[in-house]
Design a protein around this nucleic acid. Structure first.
Lengths: 225, 225
DNA sequence: ATTTATGTTAATTCTATGTTAAAAAATATT
DNA sequence: AATATTTTTTAACATAGAATTAACATAAAT
């Protein structure tokens, strides 16, 4: 779950659309007060924080977060308007994990988000959330590495994303179009049999471990539970 | 029950004809106001929403639906005119579950509808909606899996669809032609005894559980309640 | 007892997926 | 910038598995 604190509606929509379609859950807040309320109920994995906001400045919000023990290490990406705001941040900033200048592309944002989360998983103590094991196969999102019976397996980006999505949702069946949208992105318009080929290389690279990936004929693929 | 909000009469006819013939109930609305009224009375399983509408834009309707808690997760498929509208959607959209460009084929629409419903069953927290149990038999649409007394049973696509339809409507008798239309599609032109063979393999795969499927002589089949 | 509907089986046909290799695209290297 | 390397995608072909048919068996209804 990611929180987005942003008052510009068109950016809200753009970001939430992009993220949801990449399989990332988002909650959007217009105002700092709404955001603070939600923070007391559920902590997000990451915060996308606009600098210019009603009520309270983004930098001030970030400062407050960094003061409190619970939120000190919350990954934060700042959304900044190009040029104008950048200089100001440098002087005042209490340390966001990354900055993305508007306007930004979907792909850029997603890859930044993933990178920040990966880094923070590394630092943070919750090992539980970064490691998944099914049968002989262990996947570690932090190290971007997969092991089968202790042996390291080199996977490419797409292979890793695919295995990771399936393993994080073991038992759940994904149809090919769903996989394309979540991993390739909503704007990919290629053959959906591309998925099959990746499944094939995955299975073969995983060797004995490849059997955790099951074909559900007429539907798609899943990892057995 | 599916709702279709669409002002173009020829598309209304085309879609409702196609769906009704595939055993899917549809209610058609010309205008947003009629649609909103109906939404207060009965929630559909899914909404087919045209983008270009009188009174109010389809995207604006979708946004409103996504704001309200009751309709936040309503599966929505947008009907778009080819090319022209697509770009616009991407920027503004609050997240439809799928898009189908006009003109579309019946088969495509139906398979998209089924996929979206399956996926949405998965996401929703109501486990009740993705799991059905009758006697010793439990069916889970998300995992595409059936268990009898805890033991996993491997079913093929048609077998699964058949059992799933019967279990979701337990006690209701389906005649063979009805089953053919709902599972095989309106354009299947084969023997209706094909159903018998599938029932046979189902019963035998389900072992003791097979007894939940009853023959109603002279009519068809049902799952007992 | 005869007819009719359904159960059962196995051969045939069809389809989805597996598999491979080459082309295209992206990245790295010189 | 040019070249080499790796990754991704496409397309073609092979194969396993599922769907369908047809024939025969059995049980229910009249």
């Amino acid at each position: 779950m990611i929180y987005l604190l942003e008052d510009d509606i068109s950016i809200q929509k753009f970001v939430s659309y992009a993220l949801v379609n990449s399989g990332i859950e988002v909650k959007v807040f217009d105002t700092p007060s709404e955001f603070y309320k939600a923070m007391n109920e559920e902590m997000p994995e990451l915060l996308l924080l606009d600098i210019m906001l009603p009520e309270e400045d983004g930098i001030s919000i970030l400062n407050k977060l960094r003061e409190r023990e619970e939120t000190k290490k919350l990954p934060v990406i700042m959304l900044t308007a190009k040029g104008t705001e950048y200089d100001r941040i440098i002087g005042l900033d209490a340390g966001a994990d990354d900055y993305v200048a508007k306007p930004f592309s979907v792909m850029e944002l997603i890859s930044r988000i993933k990178a920040v989360i990966r880094r923070s998983e590394m630092t943070g103590t919750k090992k539980s959330e970064s490691e998944y094991t099914v049968g002989d196969v262990t996947l570690c999102t932090v190290k971007h590495m997969v092991k089968v019976k202790g042996e390291e397996i080199r996977l490419t980006y797409k292979e890793f994303e695919l295995l990771s999505l399936l393993m994080k949702n073991k038992e759940k069946v994904f149809d090919r179009d769903e996989l394309l949208v979540k991993i390739w992105g909503y704007d990919f318009d290629g053959e959906n049999r591309t998925v099959d080929v990746h499944i094939r290389t995955l299975r073969s690279k995983l060797k004995e471990g490849g059997s955790i990936i099951e074909t559900v004929r007429g539907v798609g693929y899943k990892v057995k539970g």
